[in-house]
Every structure is written in structure tokens, then in C-alpha cells.
Design a binder for these strands. Structure first.
Length: 587
RNA sequence: GCACCCGUAGCUCAGCUGGAUAGAGCGCUGCCCUCCGAAGGCAGAGGCCAGGGGUUCGAAUCCCUUCGGGUGCGCCA
């Protein structure tokens, strides 16, 4: 039940009727106006800007926006559940609702386990996130993308779309060869050799030692005498598998799992490989040519050589320059593989795809979007969400991170130290494209300026009210269906009605956040909800008659318990979207 | 030099795809704690939304431009 969407539809109907009467022109785009909660609650429960939006089209019959507003207001005033309609300012229509409408919302929350969930609609959506290289442990920056992508996928699924969570494994290219050589060194170490300092250019981390041990168990010393060309493929695969196991385990520690792990390696191969096919396809459509690229302005790379190369006409799809697909050594570029990868997504039926990347890949967005347009003949759309850096702090002081000094902080260490809930909530309590300061000490504080605590505490406090109510009235049934029978009309206090209005916004917040691909909105909405709840709680200090549980007033208590139960359900549902737990108590 | 992101209270940040008088936390000032959970509460001060143009009924939000930060800039992944 989404009263904003309901009224959006009703006002659209009213406008359509006016079109039918010839009072408004045909072919009116009825999606342009909004029905939203007014910023100032004294303006009522709902407001719409429809009269102003269509003022130009209405000029002929109505003259000015206020005249159209008057006609619309008349139609709105006749709608069920509306108690008052006012025209304000340049043509806002402010609507007051029968409190019974909000009681209906509470009953929906209490009886419908999928309150806020959108209607199943639209095609499949692919969300690709994390995609960390399988060469080592994930760091905190990966964690942000991981949490963001996961919450976004939750949100979009909840809004009614069919979502696939995907991870692209960069298991081709020189990096994984370096990984293999590094693992081979650990293998020799496991066999008793003294390997000394890890040479420059190889991965020095201890995390490869278990891989060396495993190689020893698997192969004994049989790899030692062989040339690199023979052992490398085997060692490489073993190392990649071990790294992916580690990454999957660390993701699982944050309650993140993907349905699809897509291997880049499967795109490579001979003349009938997916990359070759994708390139051939584009070439057949005249989107690939042999040509020269102007050198980049500004700082010229040291090894720049002007040469003719195979280029994709990215500029035809909005990119700044055409992009090379084949390296000077004849191998395909990473971009060529990425084209084939995204073509695979299109071939698998995804016309909506979202990639979550680190901000340092921002320069790559245009070419990827160009490629998606090209391989899908313009049918598919790619949104790339860039996650900014995470600055790790402790008590306001930056935590120094240096691989060399051995103070490199992995994502897993942070999760183990502060817990999943804190990590996930804080990562989502900021817009994805804004840098984030993550304070390891602050997120554990039990105080108002720790939003994780603040929101979870609201849920615990609400749960506490339910326990109190049960203690005061042992025969009270706390199940949703029972509470839905509560005399909700008794909820007359301003604070109570404010909470009901906020609760009624949940479906709208979900819809908007999903459409905008911005899960942080849910985190902020929950913070607002928690804040309103705590504030109303506190008003019970000065006015004991406002407390939720009063033994003298059973009916009122039941109504208030229903309100609190609704609130905790919405908080729990919102936290679930973020992947954060909703504790019953926090003692 | 070019592209993308960002610039909102002293600080850290929201601002619901263009709406009404600009929002929160911290910090600051002043009151308040026997009472459902005071790991606090209430109230107040604090703003030329970086600057300047434009678009329209209406701009923090969209366009242009200047300034100031960040990230990138054949073939790395």
C-alpha cells in the first residue's frame, strides 16, 4: 500500500478526465507531475504540483495555474479518504487525508509481510559488483563497492525486478601470471627452500603461503624441474581458485553472495572465442577500423609510439575517442574482453545492467556505455556507479595503510573488528560518489552520533515496548493480525501521527531509491524514522500520558503497541534491504 | 590540455531526478535528569547553497562560464 502512488494514479485519472472533456489538450504526458509529502507538515499530508506542471497546456482553457488547480482540487476533494484540499502559493494543491487512511497503512504493515515491495515488473537486471582481482585479499575500498552493490541489488529486487548478482573474475592477463609466479615461490618455500626476500614485482603477502602448502600436497616436488611454461597454467589455476575461495569467504562474512561468477578466461581463446566473435560482429557492422590515434594531450607516456591499430568507433556512441582493441603484442585489450563480457550479459537477456566500480575507473565509463549500446544495437542500457575512496580512521586519526610497512588493513580485519552491521551501515550512510571516512572507534560507540547504533537502538527500543506491553497485559496478542484489530483511531497525538506519516513513506522511499540506484536513501530514511521515534519517546518523559504502555488505558495502549509494532517492522524491513540486522535488544 | 565526480552552517554530511520559509549530527550558548531504556532531553544562535550569467511560474538541483579540490587520460588490469 503506497498512498503516494495511489494518489499519483488518481490525480492522473482526474487529468485524463479533463483531457476527455476537452479542457486539456490530447497527448498530455501524465508522468511529469508528482504527489509527495509536503516539507512543512502544516501544509497537509500530500501535495501535488500538477497544476503548475501543466499550466502551459492548460492556458487556453484555464488561463493561469491556480484556475487549473481549482478544477483539480474539486476533483481531488471528491476522492475517498480526502478531508480537505487547499490551493497554495503559485498552484500547489495540498491534500489532507482522513486519519483512517494512515490506519489502513498500519494495518497493511501489520498484515502484509511484503509491505513496501514493488509489483513485479520490467525485465531482468544484472548487477555486477566487487569483481576484485583474484590476486590478494580485498581491502576496505572493495568492501564499499561490495556492500553498495549488494544493497542496491536487494533494493532493486525488492522494488519488483528480477535481479542477478554477478562477479567478473579477472583471471586472464599478466596479473594472474604474476600471482602464479608468486605462488610458485611459496611452493618452493613449502618444500624447504629458503626463498629470502620476495622479488620486486611479485606479490609478497603471507596469504600465498597456504597456497604453496597446498601445491606441495597436490604435486609433491614434481613441478620443480619443469619449465615455467609447463607449471604455470596449473599453479595459476590453483592460485586463482584459492584466491577466489578467500574472497568468497570474506564476502560471506559480510553476508554477500553472487549468483554468477563469470570468468574472463572463458572469453579468450581461438578464432571462435567470445571476444573474437564480438569483435567480428562489430567489424561486420562497420564499427571497427584500422587507424591511428592522436597522442593524448598533456603528459605523453614514455613509450608512446604512433602506430596503426584496431579501433572501435566509440565516438559514434558518445565517447571522446575511439578505443583500441588489440595490443601491440597481438593480444586483445582488456576493453575487448569487456565488450565480449557485456555482450554476454545482453545475450543472456539483460537489457538493464549496473556495474559498480571504484572511482579510479571513472575514465572507463563512457567507452563501456558506448560498447553496450553498440553490442545491443541500442537496446540495452548500462549504469555505472562509482564508489569513492574509504578513508579508514581511528578516533579521528587516519589509519596508515602501507603494504610495505605491513600495516595494510584488509576488509576482513575491519569486519572482524567492528562487525558486519557497522561496516555495512556506515558504507551505506553516504552517497556512493562521495568520499567516506570510516572511523573504527566511532562505529562502536553507543551514542546518538553513531547512526548504526541510533537506528538499531530504535528497533530494540520498539521491541522493548512490545515486551513491556506484554508484561502489563499478559493476555495481549502481539501478532500482526491481532494488532491490526487495534482501535487505531485513538492515535491522535501529533507525534504518533507524524510516525504514521513517516511509515507510510516507506514504499515511496524504496521505489525512489531503487529507481535512482541510491541505497543510501534508505539508510537516511531509517535514520529519520529512528529520530522521530526517539523524539516521540522522549516526549513521554514530560507527558506520561503519551507513553506507549499505560496500564490504565488498555485500548490506547493496544493502539500504540500496533503503531510501535508497525514501526519496528518497517525498520527491520529497511535494515534488511541494507543487509543490517535488527536486534531485539542491545544490552 | 581534455573527460568525469565534487564544492551546502565553524566541522562531517543529507536535500526525495525543478517546488513552498534550506535540513541533520558534532561543536557552541542557555535550560532540564526520582518517571515506559537519560549509553540523555528541550530550546537557541549559526547560510549570498564556491562566484557570475542563463533556461521558467519557480533553481542548491538543469545549461554555459570562472575559480577551487579529487580521479583518470593509446596497447596496464
Amino acid at each position: 500500500m503506497n498512498i503516494f502512488a495511489d494518489f499519483q494514479a488518481r490525480v492522473a485519472d482526474a487529468l485524463r478526465a479533463m483531457v476527455g472533456q476537452g479542457r486539456l489538450p490530447q497527448n498530455l504526458d501524465l508522468t511529469r507531475f508528482v504527489v509527495e509529502p509536503p516539507r512543512d507538515p502544516s501544509h497537509g499530508d500530500l501535495a501535488t504540483n500538477a497544476a503548475m506542471v501543466y499550466a502551459r497546456e492548460a492556458k487556453e482553457h484555464f488561463g493561469n495555474p491556480r484556475a487549473l488547480a481549482a478544477a483539480l482540487a474539486e476533483a481531488i476533494g471528491a476522492m475517498p479518504g480526502v478531508t480537505a484540499v487547499e490551493i497554495a502559493g503559485p498552484g500547489f494543491i495540498n491534500i489532507r487525508l482522513d486519519p483512517a487512511m494512515f490506519a489502513d497503512v498500519l494495518r497493511a504493515v501489520l498484515t502484509d509481510p511484503s509491505f513496501g515491495r514493488g509489483q513485479a515488473s520490467g525485465g531482468k537486471v544484472n548487477v555486477e559488483y566487487v569483481s576484485a582481482n583474484p590476486t590478494g585479499p580485498m581491502h576496505v575500498g572493495h568492501g564499499r563497492g561490495a556492500v553498495f552493490g549488494d544493497a542496491l541489488a536487494n533494493l532493486i529486487a525488492f522494488s519488483g525486478r528480477d535481479v542477478t548478482r554477478e562477479y567478473y573474475i579477472n583471471d586472464a592477463g599478466v596479473q594472474v601470471d604474476v600471482l602464479a609466479r608468486s605462488a610458485f615461490l611459496r611452493y618452493r618455500e613449502a618444500l624447504g627452500e629458503t626463498i629470502g626476500e620476495i622479488p620486486e614485482g611479485l606479490y609478497p603477502g603471507d596469504y600465498l603461503k597456504p597456497v604453496g602448502e597446498k601445491l606441495k600436497q597436490q604435486f609433491g616436488d614434481t613441478l620443480l624441474g619443469k619449465p615455467e611454461s609447463e607449471w604455470l597454467p596449473q599453479v595459476r589455476q590453483a592460485a586463482i581458485d584459492a584466491m577466489m575461495d578467500m574472497i568468497r569467504t570474506d564476502l560471506a562474512a559480510m553476508n554477500i553472495s553472487h549468483e554468477v561468477f563469470f570468468s574472463e578466461r572463458t572469453l579468450h581463446g581461438g578464432a571462435d572465442s567470445p571476444i573474437a566473435k564480438a569483435v567480428a560482429d562489430l567489424r561486420a557492422r562497420g564499427l571497427i577500423y584500422e587507424g591511428r590515434l592522436p597522442p593524448p594531450k598533456g603528459q605523453l607516456p614514455d613509450d608512446w609510439e604512433d602506430r596503426e591499430q584496431t579501433l572501435f568507433r566509440a565516438t559514434e556512441f558518445g565517447d571522446d575517442v575511439d578505443r583500441p582493441l588489440v595490443k601491440s603484442d597481438g593480444a586483445y585489450t582488456y576493453f575487448a574482453a569487456d565488450i565480449a563480457y557485456h555482450k554476454s550479459k545482453v545475450d543472456r537477456g539483460f537489457l538493464d545492467m549496473i556495474d559498480v566500480w571504484g572511482a579510479d575507473h571513472g575514465g572507463y565509463v563512457k567507452r563501456m556505455q558506448a560498447a553496450v549500446k553498440a553490442v545491443s544495437q541500442g537496446k540495452a542500457a548500462l549504469d555505472v556507479r562509482l564508489c569513492q575512496l574509504v578513508k579508514l580512521m581511528r578516533d579521528g586519526q587516519p589509519v596508515t595503510m602501507s603494504k610495505r610497512a605491513g600495516t595494510f588493513v584488509t576488509l576482513r580485519e575491519v569486519v572482524d573488528e567492528v562487525g558486519v552491521d557497522a561496516v555495512r551501515f556506515m558504507m551505506l550512510f553516504r552517497k556512493n560518489d562521495a568520499p567516506l571516512e570510516f572511523d573504527l572507534a566511532k562505529v562502536l560507540e553507543q551514542s546518538k552520533d553513531n547512526p548504526v547504533f541510533y537506528v538499531q537502538y530504535a528497533h530494540a527500543r520498539g521491541s522493548s515496548v512490545l515486551r513491556q506491553a506484554k508484561a502489563a497485559f499478559p493476555d495481549l496478542a502481539l501478532e500482526g493480525a491481532a494488532l491490526a484489530q487495534a482501535p487505531l483511531a485513538l492515535l491522535q497525538d501529533e507525534g504518533e501521527q507524524g510516525l504514521m506519516r513517516l511509515i507510510a513513506q516507506f514504499p515511496r522511499q524504496v521505489e525512489a531509491a531503487a529507481a535512482a540506484h541510491e541505497p543510501h536513501r534508505i539508510a537516511f530514511y531509517l535514520h529519520d524514522l529512528a529520530s522521530a521515534f526517539h523524539s516521540h519517546w522522549n516526549s513521554g518523559k514530560d507527558k506520561p500520558q503519551l507513553r506507549f504502555v499505560n496500564e490504565e488505558t488498555r485500548d490506547l495502549t493496544i493502539a500504540r503497541v500496533a503503531l510501535v509494532a508497525s514501526l519496528t517492522r518497517v525498520i527491520a524491513a529497511g535494515l534488511a534491504l541494507l543487509g543490517v540486522s535488527a536486534p531485539q535488544e542491545m544490552r
